[in-house]
Design a protein around this nucleic acid. Structure first.
Lengths: 263, 263
DNA sequence: ATCGCGGCTTGACGTGGATCAACGCGCGCG
DNA sequence: CGCGCGCGTTGATCCACGTCAAGCCGCGAT
């Protein structure tokens, strides 16, 4: 697939990186809102907004939910589409992104287990979302969800809290995109991934990267080549070790923090 | 004052642009929480979260508020400081920013009349804030504000709404910072300012820029020089007219939208 | 008046990262 | 098995924007 051209608006036919063919296949749905109580055994609940709801009222939540499985690359939110559903990721990782008309892409974030998605301001989605690898999620119709918000004030409070958290990350990312060098961006990214991973119980020095170099590039406002060279240089400088393309080991965390711009 | 060096981490002594001398003079306070009902006559209320509260309960809000006047350049939030207050801007404009240790600055947004500030996630502020010109605001102690949130659910809902709005803007800004050219950034910025201005009742083609070129540069992830050259080129291309440095007239809005990357 | 200063513009030049191109590797598939 | 393809790496070259420098303007202070 053609590499997009971040700095040129006059490229011939710049296709978006996400392959359109695999992007919007029908999603495999498991309509299990009625059976048992899936929410009670959901292993994403502990890290999600759902745990704002007490055990004995979980069935109210479960009744509104539908779970689904997505294949790698499959899209489930299209920017500009009517915002009909809310989503909660139960396993896997999604990329959230915005596109320019000529195909340039900015990934605004990665969403993992427990991440709540689709809280649109207006009635259309402000960004697109695609599964990076195999992914599962549960899904709520907008109207049911709004009803649940009325019913559970704690849920609304959790949502406000997560919105503010995301706002803080977004501001951090603006600093990165506006003012950091390629090396600083990559180092910051690795440190953030390490922190996110260790919060999920991984070893603190071991980083798993489910996304491709193109995803990383579009997240950091760089090109694939610059990301690749950046990894190579960090390795040659002894800051990291590369165990294949998708696994990074931090060898010198102090130096990496230093290379990240030291915040 | 020395221009900061976005692309070099080894600059000798890069001072932050905000002059430290004027930044944290004591703020002029008007302790009027007791007198009359300032909130009822506040001309920022209609555009602020405050209007989520009914007229007859405004005194509850007013009792917690203290108004203050700030001089140009004066800071009122320092990144990393304990988050003791919430702020509501009643006139003027503030810049919100994050700094790197070497002085590089990223302005994450501009806050005008009605903008609500200081909703920190943790107990410290995640960004700094300074008045651009003369500014007035009202201020709430954190504890009182949290009490008000409990009392007025509509206030909390408005806050969630504004947080989501800001998140959408932040994502838009990430797209700008990560993937747009200097010309596109500047055009997008002018269009956004025009929209913000016309929402406040200004003529749709007339843009007032209260901030300096340095502010614009730090907001768009560029340098002063590039911003200045960008303005000059947009003028020479007939898209805008410059009436002094702080006033821009849009001469060809379609072309400007085109130059902005066409979203 | 004139001096200093901060903000803005403009020109000349340097460079970080984009672009273009080639190649290697792993993997699914005919 | 070997072919094609997607992904990652690396090298050569280019260019948009950063850096450095000079000069202008408006304004407030002496």
């Amino acid at each position: 697939m053609a590499q997009t051209s971040p700095m040129r608006a006059d490229v011939a036919m710049p296709t978006a990186r996400a392959s359109a063919t695999t992007s919007f296949r029908p999603i495999v749905i498991h309509p299990d809102g009625a059976l048992g109580d899936p929410c009670a055994h959901c292993d994403a609940r502990s890290v999600s907004v759902c745990n704002a709801i007490e055990d004995d009222r979980l069935p109210r939540l479960a009744a509104a939910a539908v779970t689904a499985t997505l294949a790698p690359g499959q899209g489930f939110i299209a920017e500009g589409d009517p915002a009909t559903h809310f989503f909660n990721i139960t396993s896997g990782t999604a990329r959230l992104f915005k596109l320019l008309p000529d195909g340039r892409r900015q990934i605004t974030g990665f969403a993992g287990r427990g991440h709540f998605l689709g809280l649109a301001v207006s009635d259309t989605y402000a960004f697109g979302a695609e599964a990076i690898g195999p992914m599962t999620m549960c899904r709520f119709p907008r109207s049911r969800m709004l009803g649940l918000l009325d019913e559970f004030r704690a849920l609304e409070q959790r949502l406000l809290e997560t919105a503010r958290n995301e706002l803080v990350s977004a501001q951090e990312q603006m600093l990165l995109l506006g003012r950091k060098t390629a090396r600083e961006r990559l180092s910051s990214f690795l440190l953030a991934q390490a922190r996110a991973g260790s919060a999920c119980g991984h070893a603190a020095h071991q980083i798993d990267l489910p996304m491709t170099r193109a995803d990383i590039a579009d997240y950091l406002g760089l090109t694939i080549e610059t990301v690749s060279r950046g990894f190579t240089r960090l390795r040659n400088d002894g800051l990291i070790r590369l165990d294949g393309a998708n696994s990074v080991h931090i060898r010198n965390i102090a130096a990496l923090e230093d290379a990240a711009g030291g915040v």
